[in-house]
Each structure stands twice: as structure tokens, then as C-alpha cells.
């Protein structure tokens, strides 16, 4: 029976490894390749840690299996030693297996800092590339205006989106912290330019939510009372899944929304469309023009 248990403990890590190797083939893996440059770097870090942990996992499980098989053979009748190995440990081994993991772990920690800083530290935001977008879409802005192109307000259980409106001369206004009469609104449908870093201001009207774009690997909690700026960059012009990742009540699972990354022109056209819809009053203007004639 002891051999059965030795095999049992040696067998399950093999199953685990095989399952992980097969998983991408069954589509039991990331929801597609990362769709943002930052997401790509997050995936790279994930794979780096996966390599390190896989090697450690295999190493420790082999060591465990080895000592088990060895132990089982030690208890066979006629084994050479009557007693187990009398050892209280080894100072040398302790030093090795403390310092080697320490170096690896510190490497993992410091290696990550840069990506984190780029994502969250304001001074490291790609400000120039964001400003280039404002240039291209002709946003009329002052130096200190918000870098955000939209404000996303989560509430139970939907995402409300506020865009700045247009000036009379057709240029796009800058997003103000408070709602303006010309602002444009949408629900559960976030449109932003693709292939450039774009920023949103994230807030919540009621409880805590979390803004999660799995394909872009972006997540940020919307915290009551705070306005949190986050930026991301979609690689392609397509629609992405947007959902809530922080328990926000009974309908937490159904904060289903989409994020559409578009060309610069497409984004402006979308805002124009919103403006038309919002100002549509269904009053037929044509008879008036007839009378004037």
C-alpha cells in the first residue's frame, strides 16, 4: 500500500502540469492575447513568474516524491539501517535554501516596479502621447484641463458615461470635473480612440465597483468619494468586454457593458451622433423653412 501512496503523491503534480500544458489548447487560458501594450507586459510578467514557479513546483514535488520513495524503501524488511537518519538539519543547506529564494524573490519584486509605475504613478503616465490624441481630435483645451476623455460612473448595476460636448465652432470641449449643459451621455457603452493611450476618470455613485477590461488586463476599483484617473491603450479597433470585478450587490454579475475602441474620426463621429440623439426633440423643422420661403 505504501508504494501506492508514493505513486499517488508523485502522480497528481504530473496531472497538474499536463492540465496546464493542455489548457491553452482547450481555450482554458487568457481571453486572447493581451489587447494593450501594458497588458502585453503584464502577460510577460505572468509568464516569467509562471516559469519560476513551475520550475520550483516541479523541483519541490520531485524532492517530495524522492524522499517518499526513499522512505518507503527504508521501511522494507532487510533495509540497511535499523533507525532513521539521525540529523537535526544542516546549517549549510539552510543558508542555501534561504538565500537563493531570497535573491529570486527580490528580483521578482524589483523587476515589476516599472510596469506598476507606468500604470499607476501619475508622473510616469504617457502624457505626450495622450496630448497627441487631443491634437488629432481637435480638442479645445487649456493647459490644466483634465487629461481624461470621459468620465465613467459606476452605479448599481450599470456604467454611466459622460463625454464633453462640442463648442459652437465644432471643436470638442475639455472634460470638466462637474457635469456641463453640453455634456454627452451614454450607458454601458464606452467609446474611445484606439491605438493611443486614453484616460478616463473613474468614480462611483453608490457602492464600490471595479472597472475590469479582461482583454486589456486593466482593472481599477471605483471607490466611493474618489475620482480615480486610469489610462489604457487598445491595440485594435474593435469592441471589448467591460464588467465589474468588485462585489457591489445582488446584481454584481450583470454589470455587462462594452468598450469600443475606434479610429479618431470614428470617435468624433460617435460623439456627434450622441449629440444629435441627445438634441433630437422630434419637432419637425421643415414647415418653418417652407414659410420663410
Amino acid at each position: 500500500m505504501k508504494w501506492f501512496w508514493c505513486l499517488f503523491f508523485a502522480f497528481w503534480p504530473i496531472v497538474a502540469i499536463v492540465l496546464c500544458l493542455l489548457a491553452p489548447g482547450f481555450d482554458w487560458w487568457f481571453p486572447g492575447k493581451a489587447e494593450s501594450p501594458l497588458g502585453g507586459r503584464i502577460d510577460d510578467l505572468f509568464y516569467m513568474i509562471l516559469w519560476i514557479t513551475t520550475v520550483t513546483f516541479i523541483g519541490t514535488q520531485i524532492a517530495l516524491a524522492y524522499v517518499l520513495f526513499k522512505g518507503a524503501s527504508n521501511t522494507e524488511p532487510g533495509a540497511e539501517n535499523e533507525k532513521a537518519w539521525f540529523s537535526h538539519g544542516s546549517h549549510q543547506l539552510e543558508v542555501i535554501w534561504s538565500s537563493v529564494p531570497a535573491v529570486i524573490l527580490l528580483f521578482i519584486a524589483f523587476y515589476q516596479l516599472e510596469v506598476w509605475a507606468e500604470y499607476r504613478v501619475k508622473d510616469a503616465f504617457p502624457r505626450e502621447r495622450m496630448e497627441a490624441v487631443f491634437e488629432r481630435i481637435h480638442q479645445d483645451r487649456q493647459k490644466n484641463d483634465s487629461l481624461a476623455l470621459a468620465e465613467v460612473t459606476a452605479r448599481q448595476f450599470e456604467w454611466r458615461i459622460r463625454y464633453p460636448g462640442f463648442n459652437a465652432d465644432g471643436t470638442l470641449k475639455a472634460l470638466m470635473p462637474d457635469p456641463q449643459p453640453t455634456d454627452l451621455y451614454a450607458v454601458n457603452d464606452l467609446h474611445l480612440p484606439a491605438s493611443a493611450p486614453v484616460m478616463i476618470n473613474l468614480r462611483t455613485q453608490d457602492v464600490q465597483h471595479s472597472f475590469f477590461l479582461p482583454e486589456l488586463r486593466i482593472k481599477q476599483d471605483a471607490v466611493p468619494g474618489l475620482v480615480i484617473p486610469i489610462w489604457f491603450e487598445a491595440n485594435h479597433q474593435r469592441s471589448y468586454q467591460l464588467l465589474c470585478a468588485e462585489l457591489c450587490g445582488w446584481g454584481h454579475y450583470k454589470m455587462n457593458a462594452r468598450f469600443v475602441a475606434e479610429s479618431d474620426e470614428g470617435f468624433i463621429e460617435y460623439l456627434r451622433q450622441l449629440e444629435r440623439e441627445q438634441n433630437e426633440d422630434r419637432v419637425d423643422d421643415t414647415p418653418d423653412t417652407d414659410e420663410e420661403e
Binding site: 517518499l68 521501511t75 529564494p101
Partner: peptide
């Protein structure tokens, strides 16, 4: 990690009863 290594070390060379 140090604890895991020490547990494996404890089994190493032992005469375990399964």
C-alpha cells in the same frame, strides 16, 4: 519556502509509516 524545504528534509532519510 524555508519551512517547506525543512519538512521535505524531515522526511528525507526517515522511516515513515504510511
Amino acid at each position: 519556502a524555508v519551512k517547506v524545504f525543512n519538512w521535505i528534509g524531515t522526511i528525507w532519510g526517515g522511516k515513515p509509516e504510511f
